[in-house]
């Protein structure tokens, strides 16, 4: 990892899906927290999916200086949370979190201990043997974050994992995410619909509109003086 350098380099990244096309070229500095905002259908999820290796794309993606364009999703140094389906419903929380350590799930005693510690860290101590169906939506988000902690990847992509939560709970989860990312020293890209989320949990904003991706800019600057398309989206 290059200290102070770019954590993510996206070069001519292009996705074509039928009529829709998206192109992106930008860099994100290490340790940055970037909010990705833009109207529905602008290509936010597609962008993160392409960076994560879930959506076929052309161009180059580098994570911490390493070219991961052709790597499988788990070989990119990236951890990602989706809108839903972040936990396996038939596994206990300990097993779900343990998958972040070992994709075979054959955990040693010491690894199980680490999984339990991670659950404690997100406020789910004592929930290790529960299953996702037995706990609330907010607690499920916490459990997913506990796994992210153990996955220990330098880059974290969030595709609105907290969208289904109420405003207060969402703010709480964003704070917890920031804490987790800071503890890991991870760089964060998160999609959000709410400008207040961007102001709360991000330093920079990446605006996506009609398949076009602007370079990230500081939150305060862009909110004070939004470009035309962003102003239309925010309704200001």
């Amino acid at each position: 990892m290059r200290g102070g350098g770019d954590m993510l380099d996206v070069e001519d990244l292009t996705v074509r899906q039928g009529d829709f096309a998206m192109t992106a070229q930008f860099s994100v500095a290490q340790g940055a927290r970037v909010a990705v905002i833009g109207p529905s259908g602008a290509g936010k999820s597609t962008l993160l999916g392409a960076i994560g290796g879930y959506v076929p794309a052309t161009g180059r993606v580098r994570v911490a200086g390493r070219d991961v364009t052709d790597a499988a999703p788990d070989q990119r140094g990236i951890a990602m949370l989706f809108q839903d389906g972040n936990l396996f419903p038939h596994l206990t929380l300990e097993q779900n979190v343990g998958l972040g350590l070992r994709p075979t799930l054959r955990l040693r005693a010491q690894e199980r201990e680490r999984a339990r510690d991670a659950l404690k860290q997100v406020g789910l101590g004592g929930y290790a043997d529960r299953r996702p169906g037995d706990i609330s939506g907010g607690q499920q988000s916490r459990a997913a974050l506990a796994r992210i902690l153990l996955q220990d990847r330098p880059l974290l992509l969030l595709d609105e994992p907290f969208a289904a939560l109420g405003p207060a709970l969402r703010a709480e989860m964003l704070d917890l995410t920031s804490t987790v990312a800071r503890d890991m020293g991870a760089t964060v890209l998160m999609i959000t619909h709410a400008p207040e989320d961007a102001e709360r949990a991000a330093d920079q904003v990446l605006f996506v509109d009609q398949g076009r991706v602007d370079a990230p800019r500081p939150v305060a600057e862009i909110m004070a003086n939004p470009p035309e398309a962003l102003r239309a989206y925010l309704g200001r």
């Binding site: 994560g52 290796g53 999703p73 396996f88 596994l91 075979t104 799930l105």
Partner: peptide, 22 residues
């Protein structure tokens, strides 16, 4: 659950054992 399995590097027998069969 395909995306989640992909992101966690589950494939082959591990994918069957941990995700598909259950």
């Amino acid at each position: 659950h395909g995306r989640l399995g992909l992101g966690l590097g589950l494939h082959g027998w591990a994918l069957w054992r941990i995700v598909l069969l259950p």
